[in-house]
Design a protein around this nucleic acid. Sequence first.
DNA 1: TATGGAAATGAAAATCATTTTCATTTATGT
DNA 2: ACATAAATGAAAATGATTTTCATTTCCATA
Lengths: 121, 121
Amino acid sequence: MSRSNPRVLSTLERAGGFASAQEVYRLMQREGESIGLTTVYRSLQSLVNDKIVDVLRREDGEAIYRLCGEAHHHHLVCKGCGDTVEIEGGAIEKWAKAMAEEHGFRDVGHTAEIFGLCAKC
Amino acid sequence: MSRSNPRVLSTLERAGGFASAQEVYRLMQREGESIGLTTVYRSLQSLVNDKIVDVLRREDGEAIYRLCGEAHHHHLVCKGCGDTVEIEGGAIEKWAKAMAEEHGFRDVGHTAEIFGLCAKC
DNA sequence: TATGGAAATGAAAATCATTTTCATTTATGT
DNA sequence: ACATAAATGAAAATGATTTTCATTTCCATA
């Protein structure tokens, strides 16, 4: 088992607390940090295990890592132009919590994304 | 541009209206149908374009295709054992619709999944 | 009924994210 | 200094998906 390379976490933070493994890697390269892609993946996974970040999926299937504790929000994504609006989801939080309780689940997280065509498209 | 091979749609229906491209392919093979993986992918994409099916992502990033019009439901997934409970999400439907309207989006769909540890794990 | 072009097909190669392997380097305790 | 464990990263393996391209099937029309 390996522990997370601290530079990975710091880069993820600098990236706005939201990025894919490849993006973190590219970012570190651009900034002149010497690190291997493998280490980036391993560190991110380790951060996930430690519940310091969690994982979502882009529409194209790429995994994106998000700092836990970041203001939790959801996305409204345009299928046409890809524009993304951050929206707030109090209703979802309540729903998730209620459903989890009802079925005896604990330690729950959730994802919720809305997609459609924006006004311009 | 290519049109959907009707056997693909019929197989997706038979699969319970919910399967990945690879699964549809394997299923057709098992049933003795002669078809190429490429055609399965193309047909599913074409069905997506025609809004006859839509796409979600498994936790591992694999795309799964769902017949539109299937009773729309959400999932509560255990991170430990993978057990999945189908749950209903009236609250989400309303939320999605409200958010879409507020931002001028039309033709919207959504995904929402809850994940945690089930009582057994 | 031929026939020419468009659409459909599928095998094989290409792509891309992610994981695994494995040899090397770095840390740490004794 | 030594031994052992942990961390690292290059390269290969994996697996889903897409692209390429040559071939086959359809279909409308001469």
